Computed example of a mutant assay.
Amino acid sequence: MEPSKQKSIMHFFQKKPNSENLVSGFNMTEEETTTSDLQHGLKRSCNNNMDHAEKSKREKGDFIRQYDSKYLEFGFTIAPSSEKVPLPMCLVCAKILSNDAMKPSKLTRHFHSLHSNLVGKPLAYFKRLLSETENERIKIKKMTKTDKDLLKSSYLIALLISKTKKPFTIGEDLIKPCMLAAATEVLGPEQANKLKAIPLSNDSIKRRILDMAVDVEQQVIEQVKQSRYFAIQLDESTDLSNCAILSCFVRYETEESIIDEFLCCLQLHGRTRPVQKYFGLLILMCKSKV
Rank of each mutant, 00 (worst) to 15 (best):
L42Y: 10
E255L: 13
V186Y: 12
A53W: 07
L200S: 01
S116V: 09
K163W: 05
F279G: 01
S288T: 15
A182I: 03
E236T: 13
I209V: 15
D68I: 01
E236C: 14
K166P: 00
E31R: 09
H110W: 10
E54M: 07
F111E: 03
L151Y: 07
S19I: 08
S24R: 03
E185A: 06
F12K: 10
K196L: 03
K15G: 04
S45I: 12
I283K: 09
F26R: 12
N242A: 14
E172S: 04
C265D: 04
E134W: 08
R251F: 02
K121A: 12
P189K: 04
Q219I: 11
K142Q: 11
L240D: 14
L246A: 03
K103G: 08
A213C: 05
L97T: 02
Q66G: 07
S81K: 15
Q226F: 00
D211C: 08
Q226S: 03
M28V: 14
E73N: 14
T34I: 07
D149I: 04
K206D: 02
P86S: 10
R273Q: 09
V250S: 02
L72G: 10
D239N: 15
Q14I: 09
Q267G: 14
I232N: 00
T164H: 13
E185L: 10
F249N: 02
T108A: 13
K206W: 02
L42T: 04
Q223E: 14
L281K: 01
D37P: 00
Y67A: 10
K95H: 14
F230Q: 00
R128I: 04
M285H: 04
L174K: 10
N49T: 03
C90S: 07
S36E: 12
R44N: 10
R228P: 00
R271M: 04
T77W: 11
S24C: 02
N49C: 09
T29M: 13
L263D: 00
L22G: 15
I157A: 01
I170W: 01
A197N: 07
V220P: 00
K15T: 13
D211Q: 11
Q223L: 06
K5Q: 11
G280C: 12
T146P: 00
K70I: 04
F279C: 12
F74M: 14
K15R: 10
R207Y: 06
K15I: 09
K287Q: 05
L174P: 00
D235H: 14
I138F: 06
H40Y: 06
Q223M: 11
K7E: 11
I205W: 02
Q219F: 08
K15Q: 06
H269W: 07
L114M: 13
T146R: 15
D173A: 13
M89N: 10
L281I: 09
H112R: 15
E132L: 08
S36F: 10
M102L: 14
P122G: 13
H40K: 14
M212A: 13
I161Y: 04
L129N: 06
S201M: 01
Y155V: 02
F26G: 10
L195A: 04
A183H: 06
S113M: 08
H40M: 10
E190F: 06
E190A: 12
